[in-house]
Amino acid sequence: MDTAAARARLQEALADADRSIAILKGEHPERENSASDAGAILTDSDRVEAALESLERHRAAVVRALERIAAGTYGRCVDCGEPVPEGRLEVRPEAARCLTCQARHDKAMR
């Protein structure tokens, strides 16, 4: 496991998330609040809010992964302690769980 490469990828992902969040927070639909536009404004606002929430969750996962690198626990499942497969970390360097524990976690979140 090359933690230097993982750190670089995570720092790049963090910078990308920060840029995207800043852009979305800066978007303000400049439409008149007429009755015909009210639904469109709400829909645009809802989409921006959903995108922001998703980006902020991703950003938090990236920050936690960088913290695991600093603590020397990166690449280990936060639930069972087993190694997270390198292929999984290659695709999702912020991954905190092995596939088995991630499936359990996802099922519990439903």
Rank of each mutant, 00 (worst) to 15 (best):
D44N: 01
S34I: 08
D46H: 12
R57F: 04
L55G: 14
C80Y: 09
E56A: 10
V48R: 14
P85W: 11
P29N: 02
D44G: 00
S54D: 06
G26W: 05
A50Q: 07
G26A: 03
S36F: 08
T73D: 13
R76C: 06
L55K: 10
E82M: 05
R64I: 01
G72S: 01
D46M: 12
A51M: 14
A61F: 02
P85V: 05
N33M: 00
S45W: 00
E82S: 05
C77E: 00
S34R: 15
R57D: 03
S34E: 06
D37C: 03
T73S: 15
A61W: 01
D44K: 01
V78K: 04
H58P: 08
S34A: 05
A35Q: 10
G72L: 01
P29G: 01
V48C: 09
P85R: 14
A38R: 15
R47K: 03
P83F: 04
L42N: 11
A60K: 15
R68F: 15
I69E: 10
S45E: 11
L52Y: 12
D46G: 06
A65F: 12
S45N: 12
L52I: 13
H28W: 05
V78R: 15
R47P: 00
E56D: 04
R31I: 05
Y74A: 07
R47N: 02
E67Q: 11
A70W: 06
R31W: 11
A65D: 08
C80M: 08
R57E: 09
G81L: 06
A51F: 08
N33Y: 01
G81F: 07
S54A: 05
A40I: 00
L42V: 08
I41V: 15
I69Y: 08
S36V: 13
L66Y: 08
A50Y: 02
V62W: 13
L55T: 14
R76S: 04
G26F: 00
A38I: 12
E82C: 03
G39V: 03
L66R: 08
P29R: 02
E67K: 13
V62I: 15
V62H: 13
